[in-house]
Amino acid sequence: MQATSESGGGLSPIVKTVARWMAGFILVFGLSVVLYGHLTPGGGFAGGVVLSAAFILVVLSHGRREVLQILSERAPTIYDGLAALAFLLLAVLGYAAGGFFLNFLPKGQPFQLWSGGIIPLCNLAIGVKVGACLFGVFAALAVFRHLHQRSA
């Protein structure tokens, strides 16, 4: 099993099937932790780590050959940078209403999903950013290293 994983082919079909089912649930859990961060424990950082865990599970079970066919090397970097810019944009947009990081959106009803002004949007940006960051580090260490050794 270790030998097939090292050659990039992935683990056995049982592991692949279970991982394929579980990855969806883990993604949904991570998204709920991110989106409900202003209502329940959690938030952008924890939810982002859970999101990256789903992708890491797929990489570990399916091997890097299958993953590299659907995911380019630049994807984590692009999402990381876009989410960081979105978070900064939300902060700077506060100037339009009067100050840096001002909560300029309507507050809404407490305990509803659409409440808290810019806080859910900030959580979403941080979640995407942290998820892309951590998956990017894992990919750079575990997946792309072999790719570069082959191409170099």
Binding site: L39, F101, K129
Partner: peptide, 29 residues
């Protein structure tokens, strides 16, 4: 009343102390 977020940890992280969180995100980046 000021942020509309029920989770006070999030309201401090992203509203009262949003500037700190921006610095933290910059460090990770």
């Amino acid at each position: 009343p000021d942020t509309g977020a029920v989770n006070y940890v999030t309201s401090i992280l992203l509203d009262f102390r949003g500037y700190d969180t921006l610095g933290e995100a910059t460090v990770i980046f």
